[in-house]
Amino acid sequence: MLIDSMAMAPGERVEAIREVIWSSVVRVEITHQSDPRLIRTAGVISRVGPLTVCSVRANATAVRRTPALTRDDMEPSVFVGLQVTGSSVVVQDGREAVLRPGDLALYDTTRPYTLLNRNGIHQHYFRIPRSELSLPSKLLDLATAVPFSRRDPLTDLTAACLRRIARQQARPAVSPAHDFQAAGRPCIELLRALIAARLGDHRTVCQAADETMHLQVMDYVRAHLGDHDLTPAGVAAYHHVSLRQLYKILSRHGVHLGEWVRSQRLERCRAELADPRAEHRSIAAVAYRWGFPNAAHFSRAFKRAFGITPSDWRALHAGSGGSPRALNP
């Protein structure tokens, strides 16, 4: 579902935005800090497995879930707010969390809360049923309105996972919905680990860490795809596990490391060869950049994967701003 206040009549914007949020996200009172004619709100709302994802940019607002609204029939849920730019404040349970870009905060729909966005909203919001988090209520209640700083490695990893989901749901044509629905579960497991680690629940931390190790491994590999010395042994050593443990962890989630690395590298090459900003780079240079030192081997692997040669793929996108165009016969 798309939200675009510019497509609404000025006099209808306040009520229309309220109706969309109430029906699709959560029942809250929204106070706009500007004349209705100047209200600017744009966003996307979607579902990714158990997650409801809402990405929004808007003028300054105050959002309140009042005591009366907490008694609605909505399934008890937790929201995770991921700050994109600017800053905001989350108030709940007598605590205040000030968020800056990359920071996270939680708030619970079963109790009143306030979100203050004095300079405008630019956030990704994720609604998760409390039952999906499988955390003790007392533990979860202590995590509301507590800032999770981007400087913490586990927060950064969790935010990166959530950010990818938010960006992907805004581009449904890139990855079909049925291929993407499973992505919500790993993010929830990371969030469980993050909450437990922050609040010192060591048993839950160990359990969640085991369940999310494959995500940490894959995130590390994504960041090092261009390294020519990237090896399974090196990945295992970085994560303090044996090579056998590494393969066992990944196999539980259907990941064959060598094949996955190759497919990721090929995808990076395919994206760069279609990017007009990279047209000055030779195909061999692009291949080398993403871990293929042998241009001939890369060309064969690319054609096997995508059914087209790298040069023909680049020609399809040449001078078209990244959009395909027909090859000359």
Results as ranks from 00 to 15, higher is better:
263 S>I: 06
292 F>T: 08
174 V>S: 11
217 V>L: 15
115 L>A: 07
239 H>V: 04
220 Y>P: 11
72 D>M: 07
247 Y>M: 02
27 R>F: 01
17 I>Y: 03
294 N>H: 13
232 P>W: 03
37 R>L: 01
204 T>R: 12
40 R>I: 09
130 R>I: 10
237 A>H: 15
317 H>M: 01
116 L>M: 07
213 M>T: 13
163 R>G: 05
5 S>L: 07
295 A>I: 01
169 Q>E: 09
299 S>I: 00
219 D>H: 15
45 I>C: 10
263 S>F: 00
103 D>F: 09
81 G>A: 13
313 W>V: 01
35 D>A: 06
259 E>Q: 15
231 T>Q: 07
23 S>W: 04
277 R>D: 09
15 E>C: 00
53 V>E: 05
273 L>F: 08
180 F>Y: 15
60 A>K: 08
300 R>K: 12
116 L>C: 01
307 G>K: 07
102 G>P: 14
34 S>H: 05
177 A>Q: 13
283 I>V: 11
30 I>N: 07
37 R>C: 03
202 H>N: 02
196 A>V: 07
71 R>M: 10
168 Q>T: 10
216 Q>V: 04
269 C>E: 09
157 L>F: 11
163 R>M: 05
179 D>R: 13
299 S>Q: 11
113 Y>V: 00
138 K>C: 00
223 A>Y: 03
91 V>Y: 04
104 L>F: 03
180 F>C: 06
78 V>M: 15
54 C>N: 10
45 I>T: 05
69 L>G: 13
61 T>M: 08
242 S>L: 02
209 A>I: 05
71 R>C: 11
280 H>Y: 08
37 R>E: 07
138 K>R: 08
320 S>Y: 00
294 N>D: 15
89 V>Q: 08
18 R>H: 08
9 A>H: 06
111 R>A: 13
103 D>Y: 14
60 A>Q: 07
16 A>G: 10
329 P>T: 02
83 Q>Y: 01
21 I>T: 15
243 L>W: 05
121 I>F: 02
36 P>A: 00
51 L>A: 10
8 M>S: 06
155 T>A: 12
65 R>A: 04
144 T>C: 11
231 T>F: 01
277 R>E: 11
179 D>A: 15
75 E>P: 12
35 D>S: 13
294 N>A: 08
35 D>C: 12
